[in-house]
Design a protein around this nucleic acid. Structure first.
Lengths: 237, 237
DNA sequence: AAAATATTCGCCAGAAATGGGGAGGAGAAG
DNA sequence: CTTCTCCTCCCCATTTCTGGCGAATATTTT
């Protein structure tokens, strides 16, 4: 397995297009010896990318119904850091149960193991392996392969990001220190009066920073600027 | 190395306090055979945690001077997904060069390899190994150990998160679908008129959602609510 | 079946943010 | 040494947001 994964990662790194990457992702079924493999990148709602071994109908339906909003796998992984077995997710709630029914009907395996991956600029993706092994067997299997799955997820996501934007580094607008300060205060819930006091500057000066940050970020208003700065990692709150 | 790392990860997972974790992190010097090892978690500006093998004086100084804002290692990793060699970072700019000088004087190795790690709720951390090997040797060394470093970073961060908040899962407020819609529109830069039109509801109804979301999130104002929702992963823009 | 949420609608007045002007000094990069 | 970005301060008119009042139906959970 170790050797196969090493070889596999090399083939992933040699991919040059999303089509090739998609092929590599499907190859993973053999490497990991599971029924299904999924790489699902979720950025803006509605701007998702998925490469998987499910039916195309399921993908279409899933996206059309915005299932990412109720899918406990997505929702659970959004709140977690470590890979998680599907059985440990929260399947209570009508929407989740209904979704599960439809998913199983569509051929999605009842066992699954998903790893959340996060990149810069708020990027989020899921890497999943799914199968129909029994509970006991699946548990042993996943325990034995956590690290391999983590590494596969990492390198696939790296490649996806690289293909998408040409390099590892995102070239985003740069904000001056004071602009960062200003946006940070606002993101913490301060209004302009409080923020300017915290920074020991006049309220007018604060506004200049907010203004310039907004224009640098191409934001329509302050809230938009905060949202952009946060997702771009320019401001940490 | 493979075997040693496996054993090491088990010892990391058995740590029950930050002190123990700190011990495990220092042990990594032997596992990886490098001079310095650093785990640096950056959440709010000013709420950082670091566990490392540098001098306590350097840590104090670093935090006091807010060096995370100019440190090219931090800034570079904030924009990257894949581990990066320090030499490939952007050291131009007076602030960065001055910082480098002070760092080297403080005993920080001139070679370094850092991996960015991101968790839920906007959590961000860096795992770094640093040494004084020559360029050529260091390059070969890091190439050979990327995967080990990635895994070490992952499990250390997992443990740090677990110790910090008791479990892998963050238990955050849940928003209703419409509340998410409302905040999403605002985060995209729409004002209330545009947002309510997009959602085909009255402006007043929109306000109700914003209000309830704000109270659920314990936010002081709309901007604060957006910021919280974004960093908590409740809203994806 | 009862309780709790979620979704939807309206009006008004005061508070806050925005847009568009203008201007000087300090420091860094080329 | 010139150019550029950064930091700092000020006014006014208009738009937008916030807070506080109240209320009905539908869906989900307990």
């Amino acid at each position: 397995m170790q050797g196969r994964l090493d070889t596999y990662i090399e083939t992933v790194q040699s991919a040059n297009s999303l089509d090739e990457l998609q092929g590599r992702i499907k190859d993973l079924r053999n490497v990991f010896d599971v029924e299904h493999v999924v790489y699902h990148s979720i950025n803006s709602l509605g701007q998702q990318y998925a490469s998987h071994t499910y039916t195309p109908e399921w993908e279409t339906y899933y996206f059309a119904e915005n299932f990412e909003r109720i899918d406990p796998v997505v929702q659970g992984c959004l709140r977690r850091f470590h890979p998680v077995d599907w059985r440990r997710l929260d399947w209570s709630g009508k929407a989740a149960r209904d979704f599960l029914g439809e998913a199983v009907d569509a051929g999605v395996g009842h066992q699954g193991f998903s790893v959340p991956i996060r990149g810069p600029s708020g990027q989020f993706a899921l890497f999943t392996i799914s199968d129909r092994r029994s509970d006991a067997v699946w548990e042993k299997y996943t325990e034995a392969h956590v690290r391999d799955v983590i590494l596969a997820a990492h390198f696939i996501n790296q490649k996806a990001l690289e293909i998408e934007r040409g390099s590892d580094e995102a070239d985003v607008a740069k904000l001056s220190p004071r602009e960062v300060d200003a946006l940070t205060m606002l993101a913490m819930g301060y209004n302009r009066a409080q923020a300017s006091e915290s920074l020991s500057i006049s309220e007018h000066t604060l506004r200049v920073y907010i203004e310039s940050a907004r224009s640098k970020l191409g934001a329509a208003n302050t809230t938009h600027a905060i949202a952009k700065a946060l997702t771009l990692g320019l401001v940490i709150v």
